[in-house]
């Protein structure tokens, strides 16, 4: 039913995402789907990575670690945003369309102070894409 599942991740705050990651892994095994881990970063240095390349390396490492746990094929997609605090929804929607995923599994309640995936994001993303969206509350 689903061939490619996307999970937006915030590498700085993985704990609240644990449930969404588990759900995505279960679904991927069930449908024999690929999991695409998407991370949004600015081009300016951030606490997590000094360059987008460094961010890509970290996301790659994270995806491989996930693959080792669930055994399905994975990919890591770095989404560049000029202004992550403002256009996160827009860049995620674009990434979903470009990467041809058919299901998005999103964690919904991340630490408010980062604003990286506030509850409203899931709803906004859902209204702007054709993909199915599964919102996972922690």
């Amino acid at each position: 039913m689903y061939n490619k599942i996307m999970v937006p991740v915030d590498l700085a705050h993985l704990d609240p995402l644990a449930k969404a990651l588990e759900v995505a892994a279960d679904l991927a095994r069930h449908y024999r789907a690929e999991v695409c881990y998407a991370g949004v970063t600015a081009t300016a240095p951030s606490p997590l990575a000094h360059t987008p390349q460094e961010y890509q390396q970290k996301l790659d490492a994270f995806s491989k670690q996930q693959a080792a746990e669930h055994g399905q094929p994975v990919s890591a997609r770095v989404v560049i945003s000029h202004d992550p605090a403002a256009d996160l929804d827009a860049v995620l929607v674009k990434a979903i369309e470009e990467s041809g995923v058919d299901l998005v599994v999103m964690g919904t309640h991340l630490p408010r102070h980062l604003g990286i995936l506030m509850p409203s994001h899931g709803g906004k993303v859902a209204t702007h894409t054709d993909a199915s969206i599964l919102l996972v509350r922690p």
């Binding site: 300016a44 240095p45 606490p47 992550p84 605090a85 102070h113 980062l114 604003g115």
Partner: peptide, 8 residues
């Protein structure tokens, strides 16, 4: 502190 993704 130079963060570009501080809360809006």
């Amino acid at each position: 502190g130079g963060k570009t993704d501080a809360p809006r």
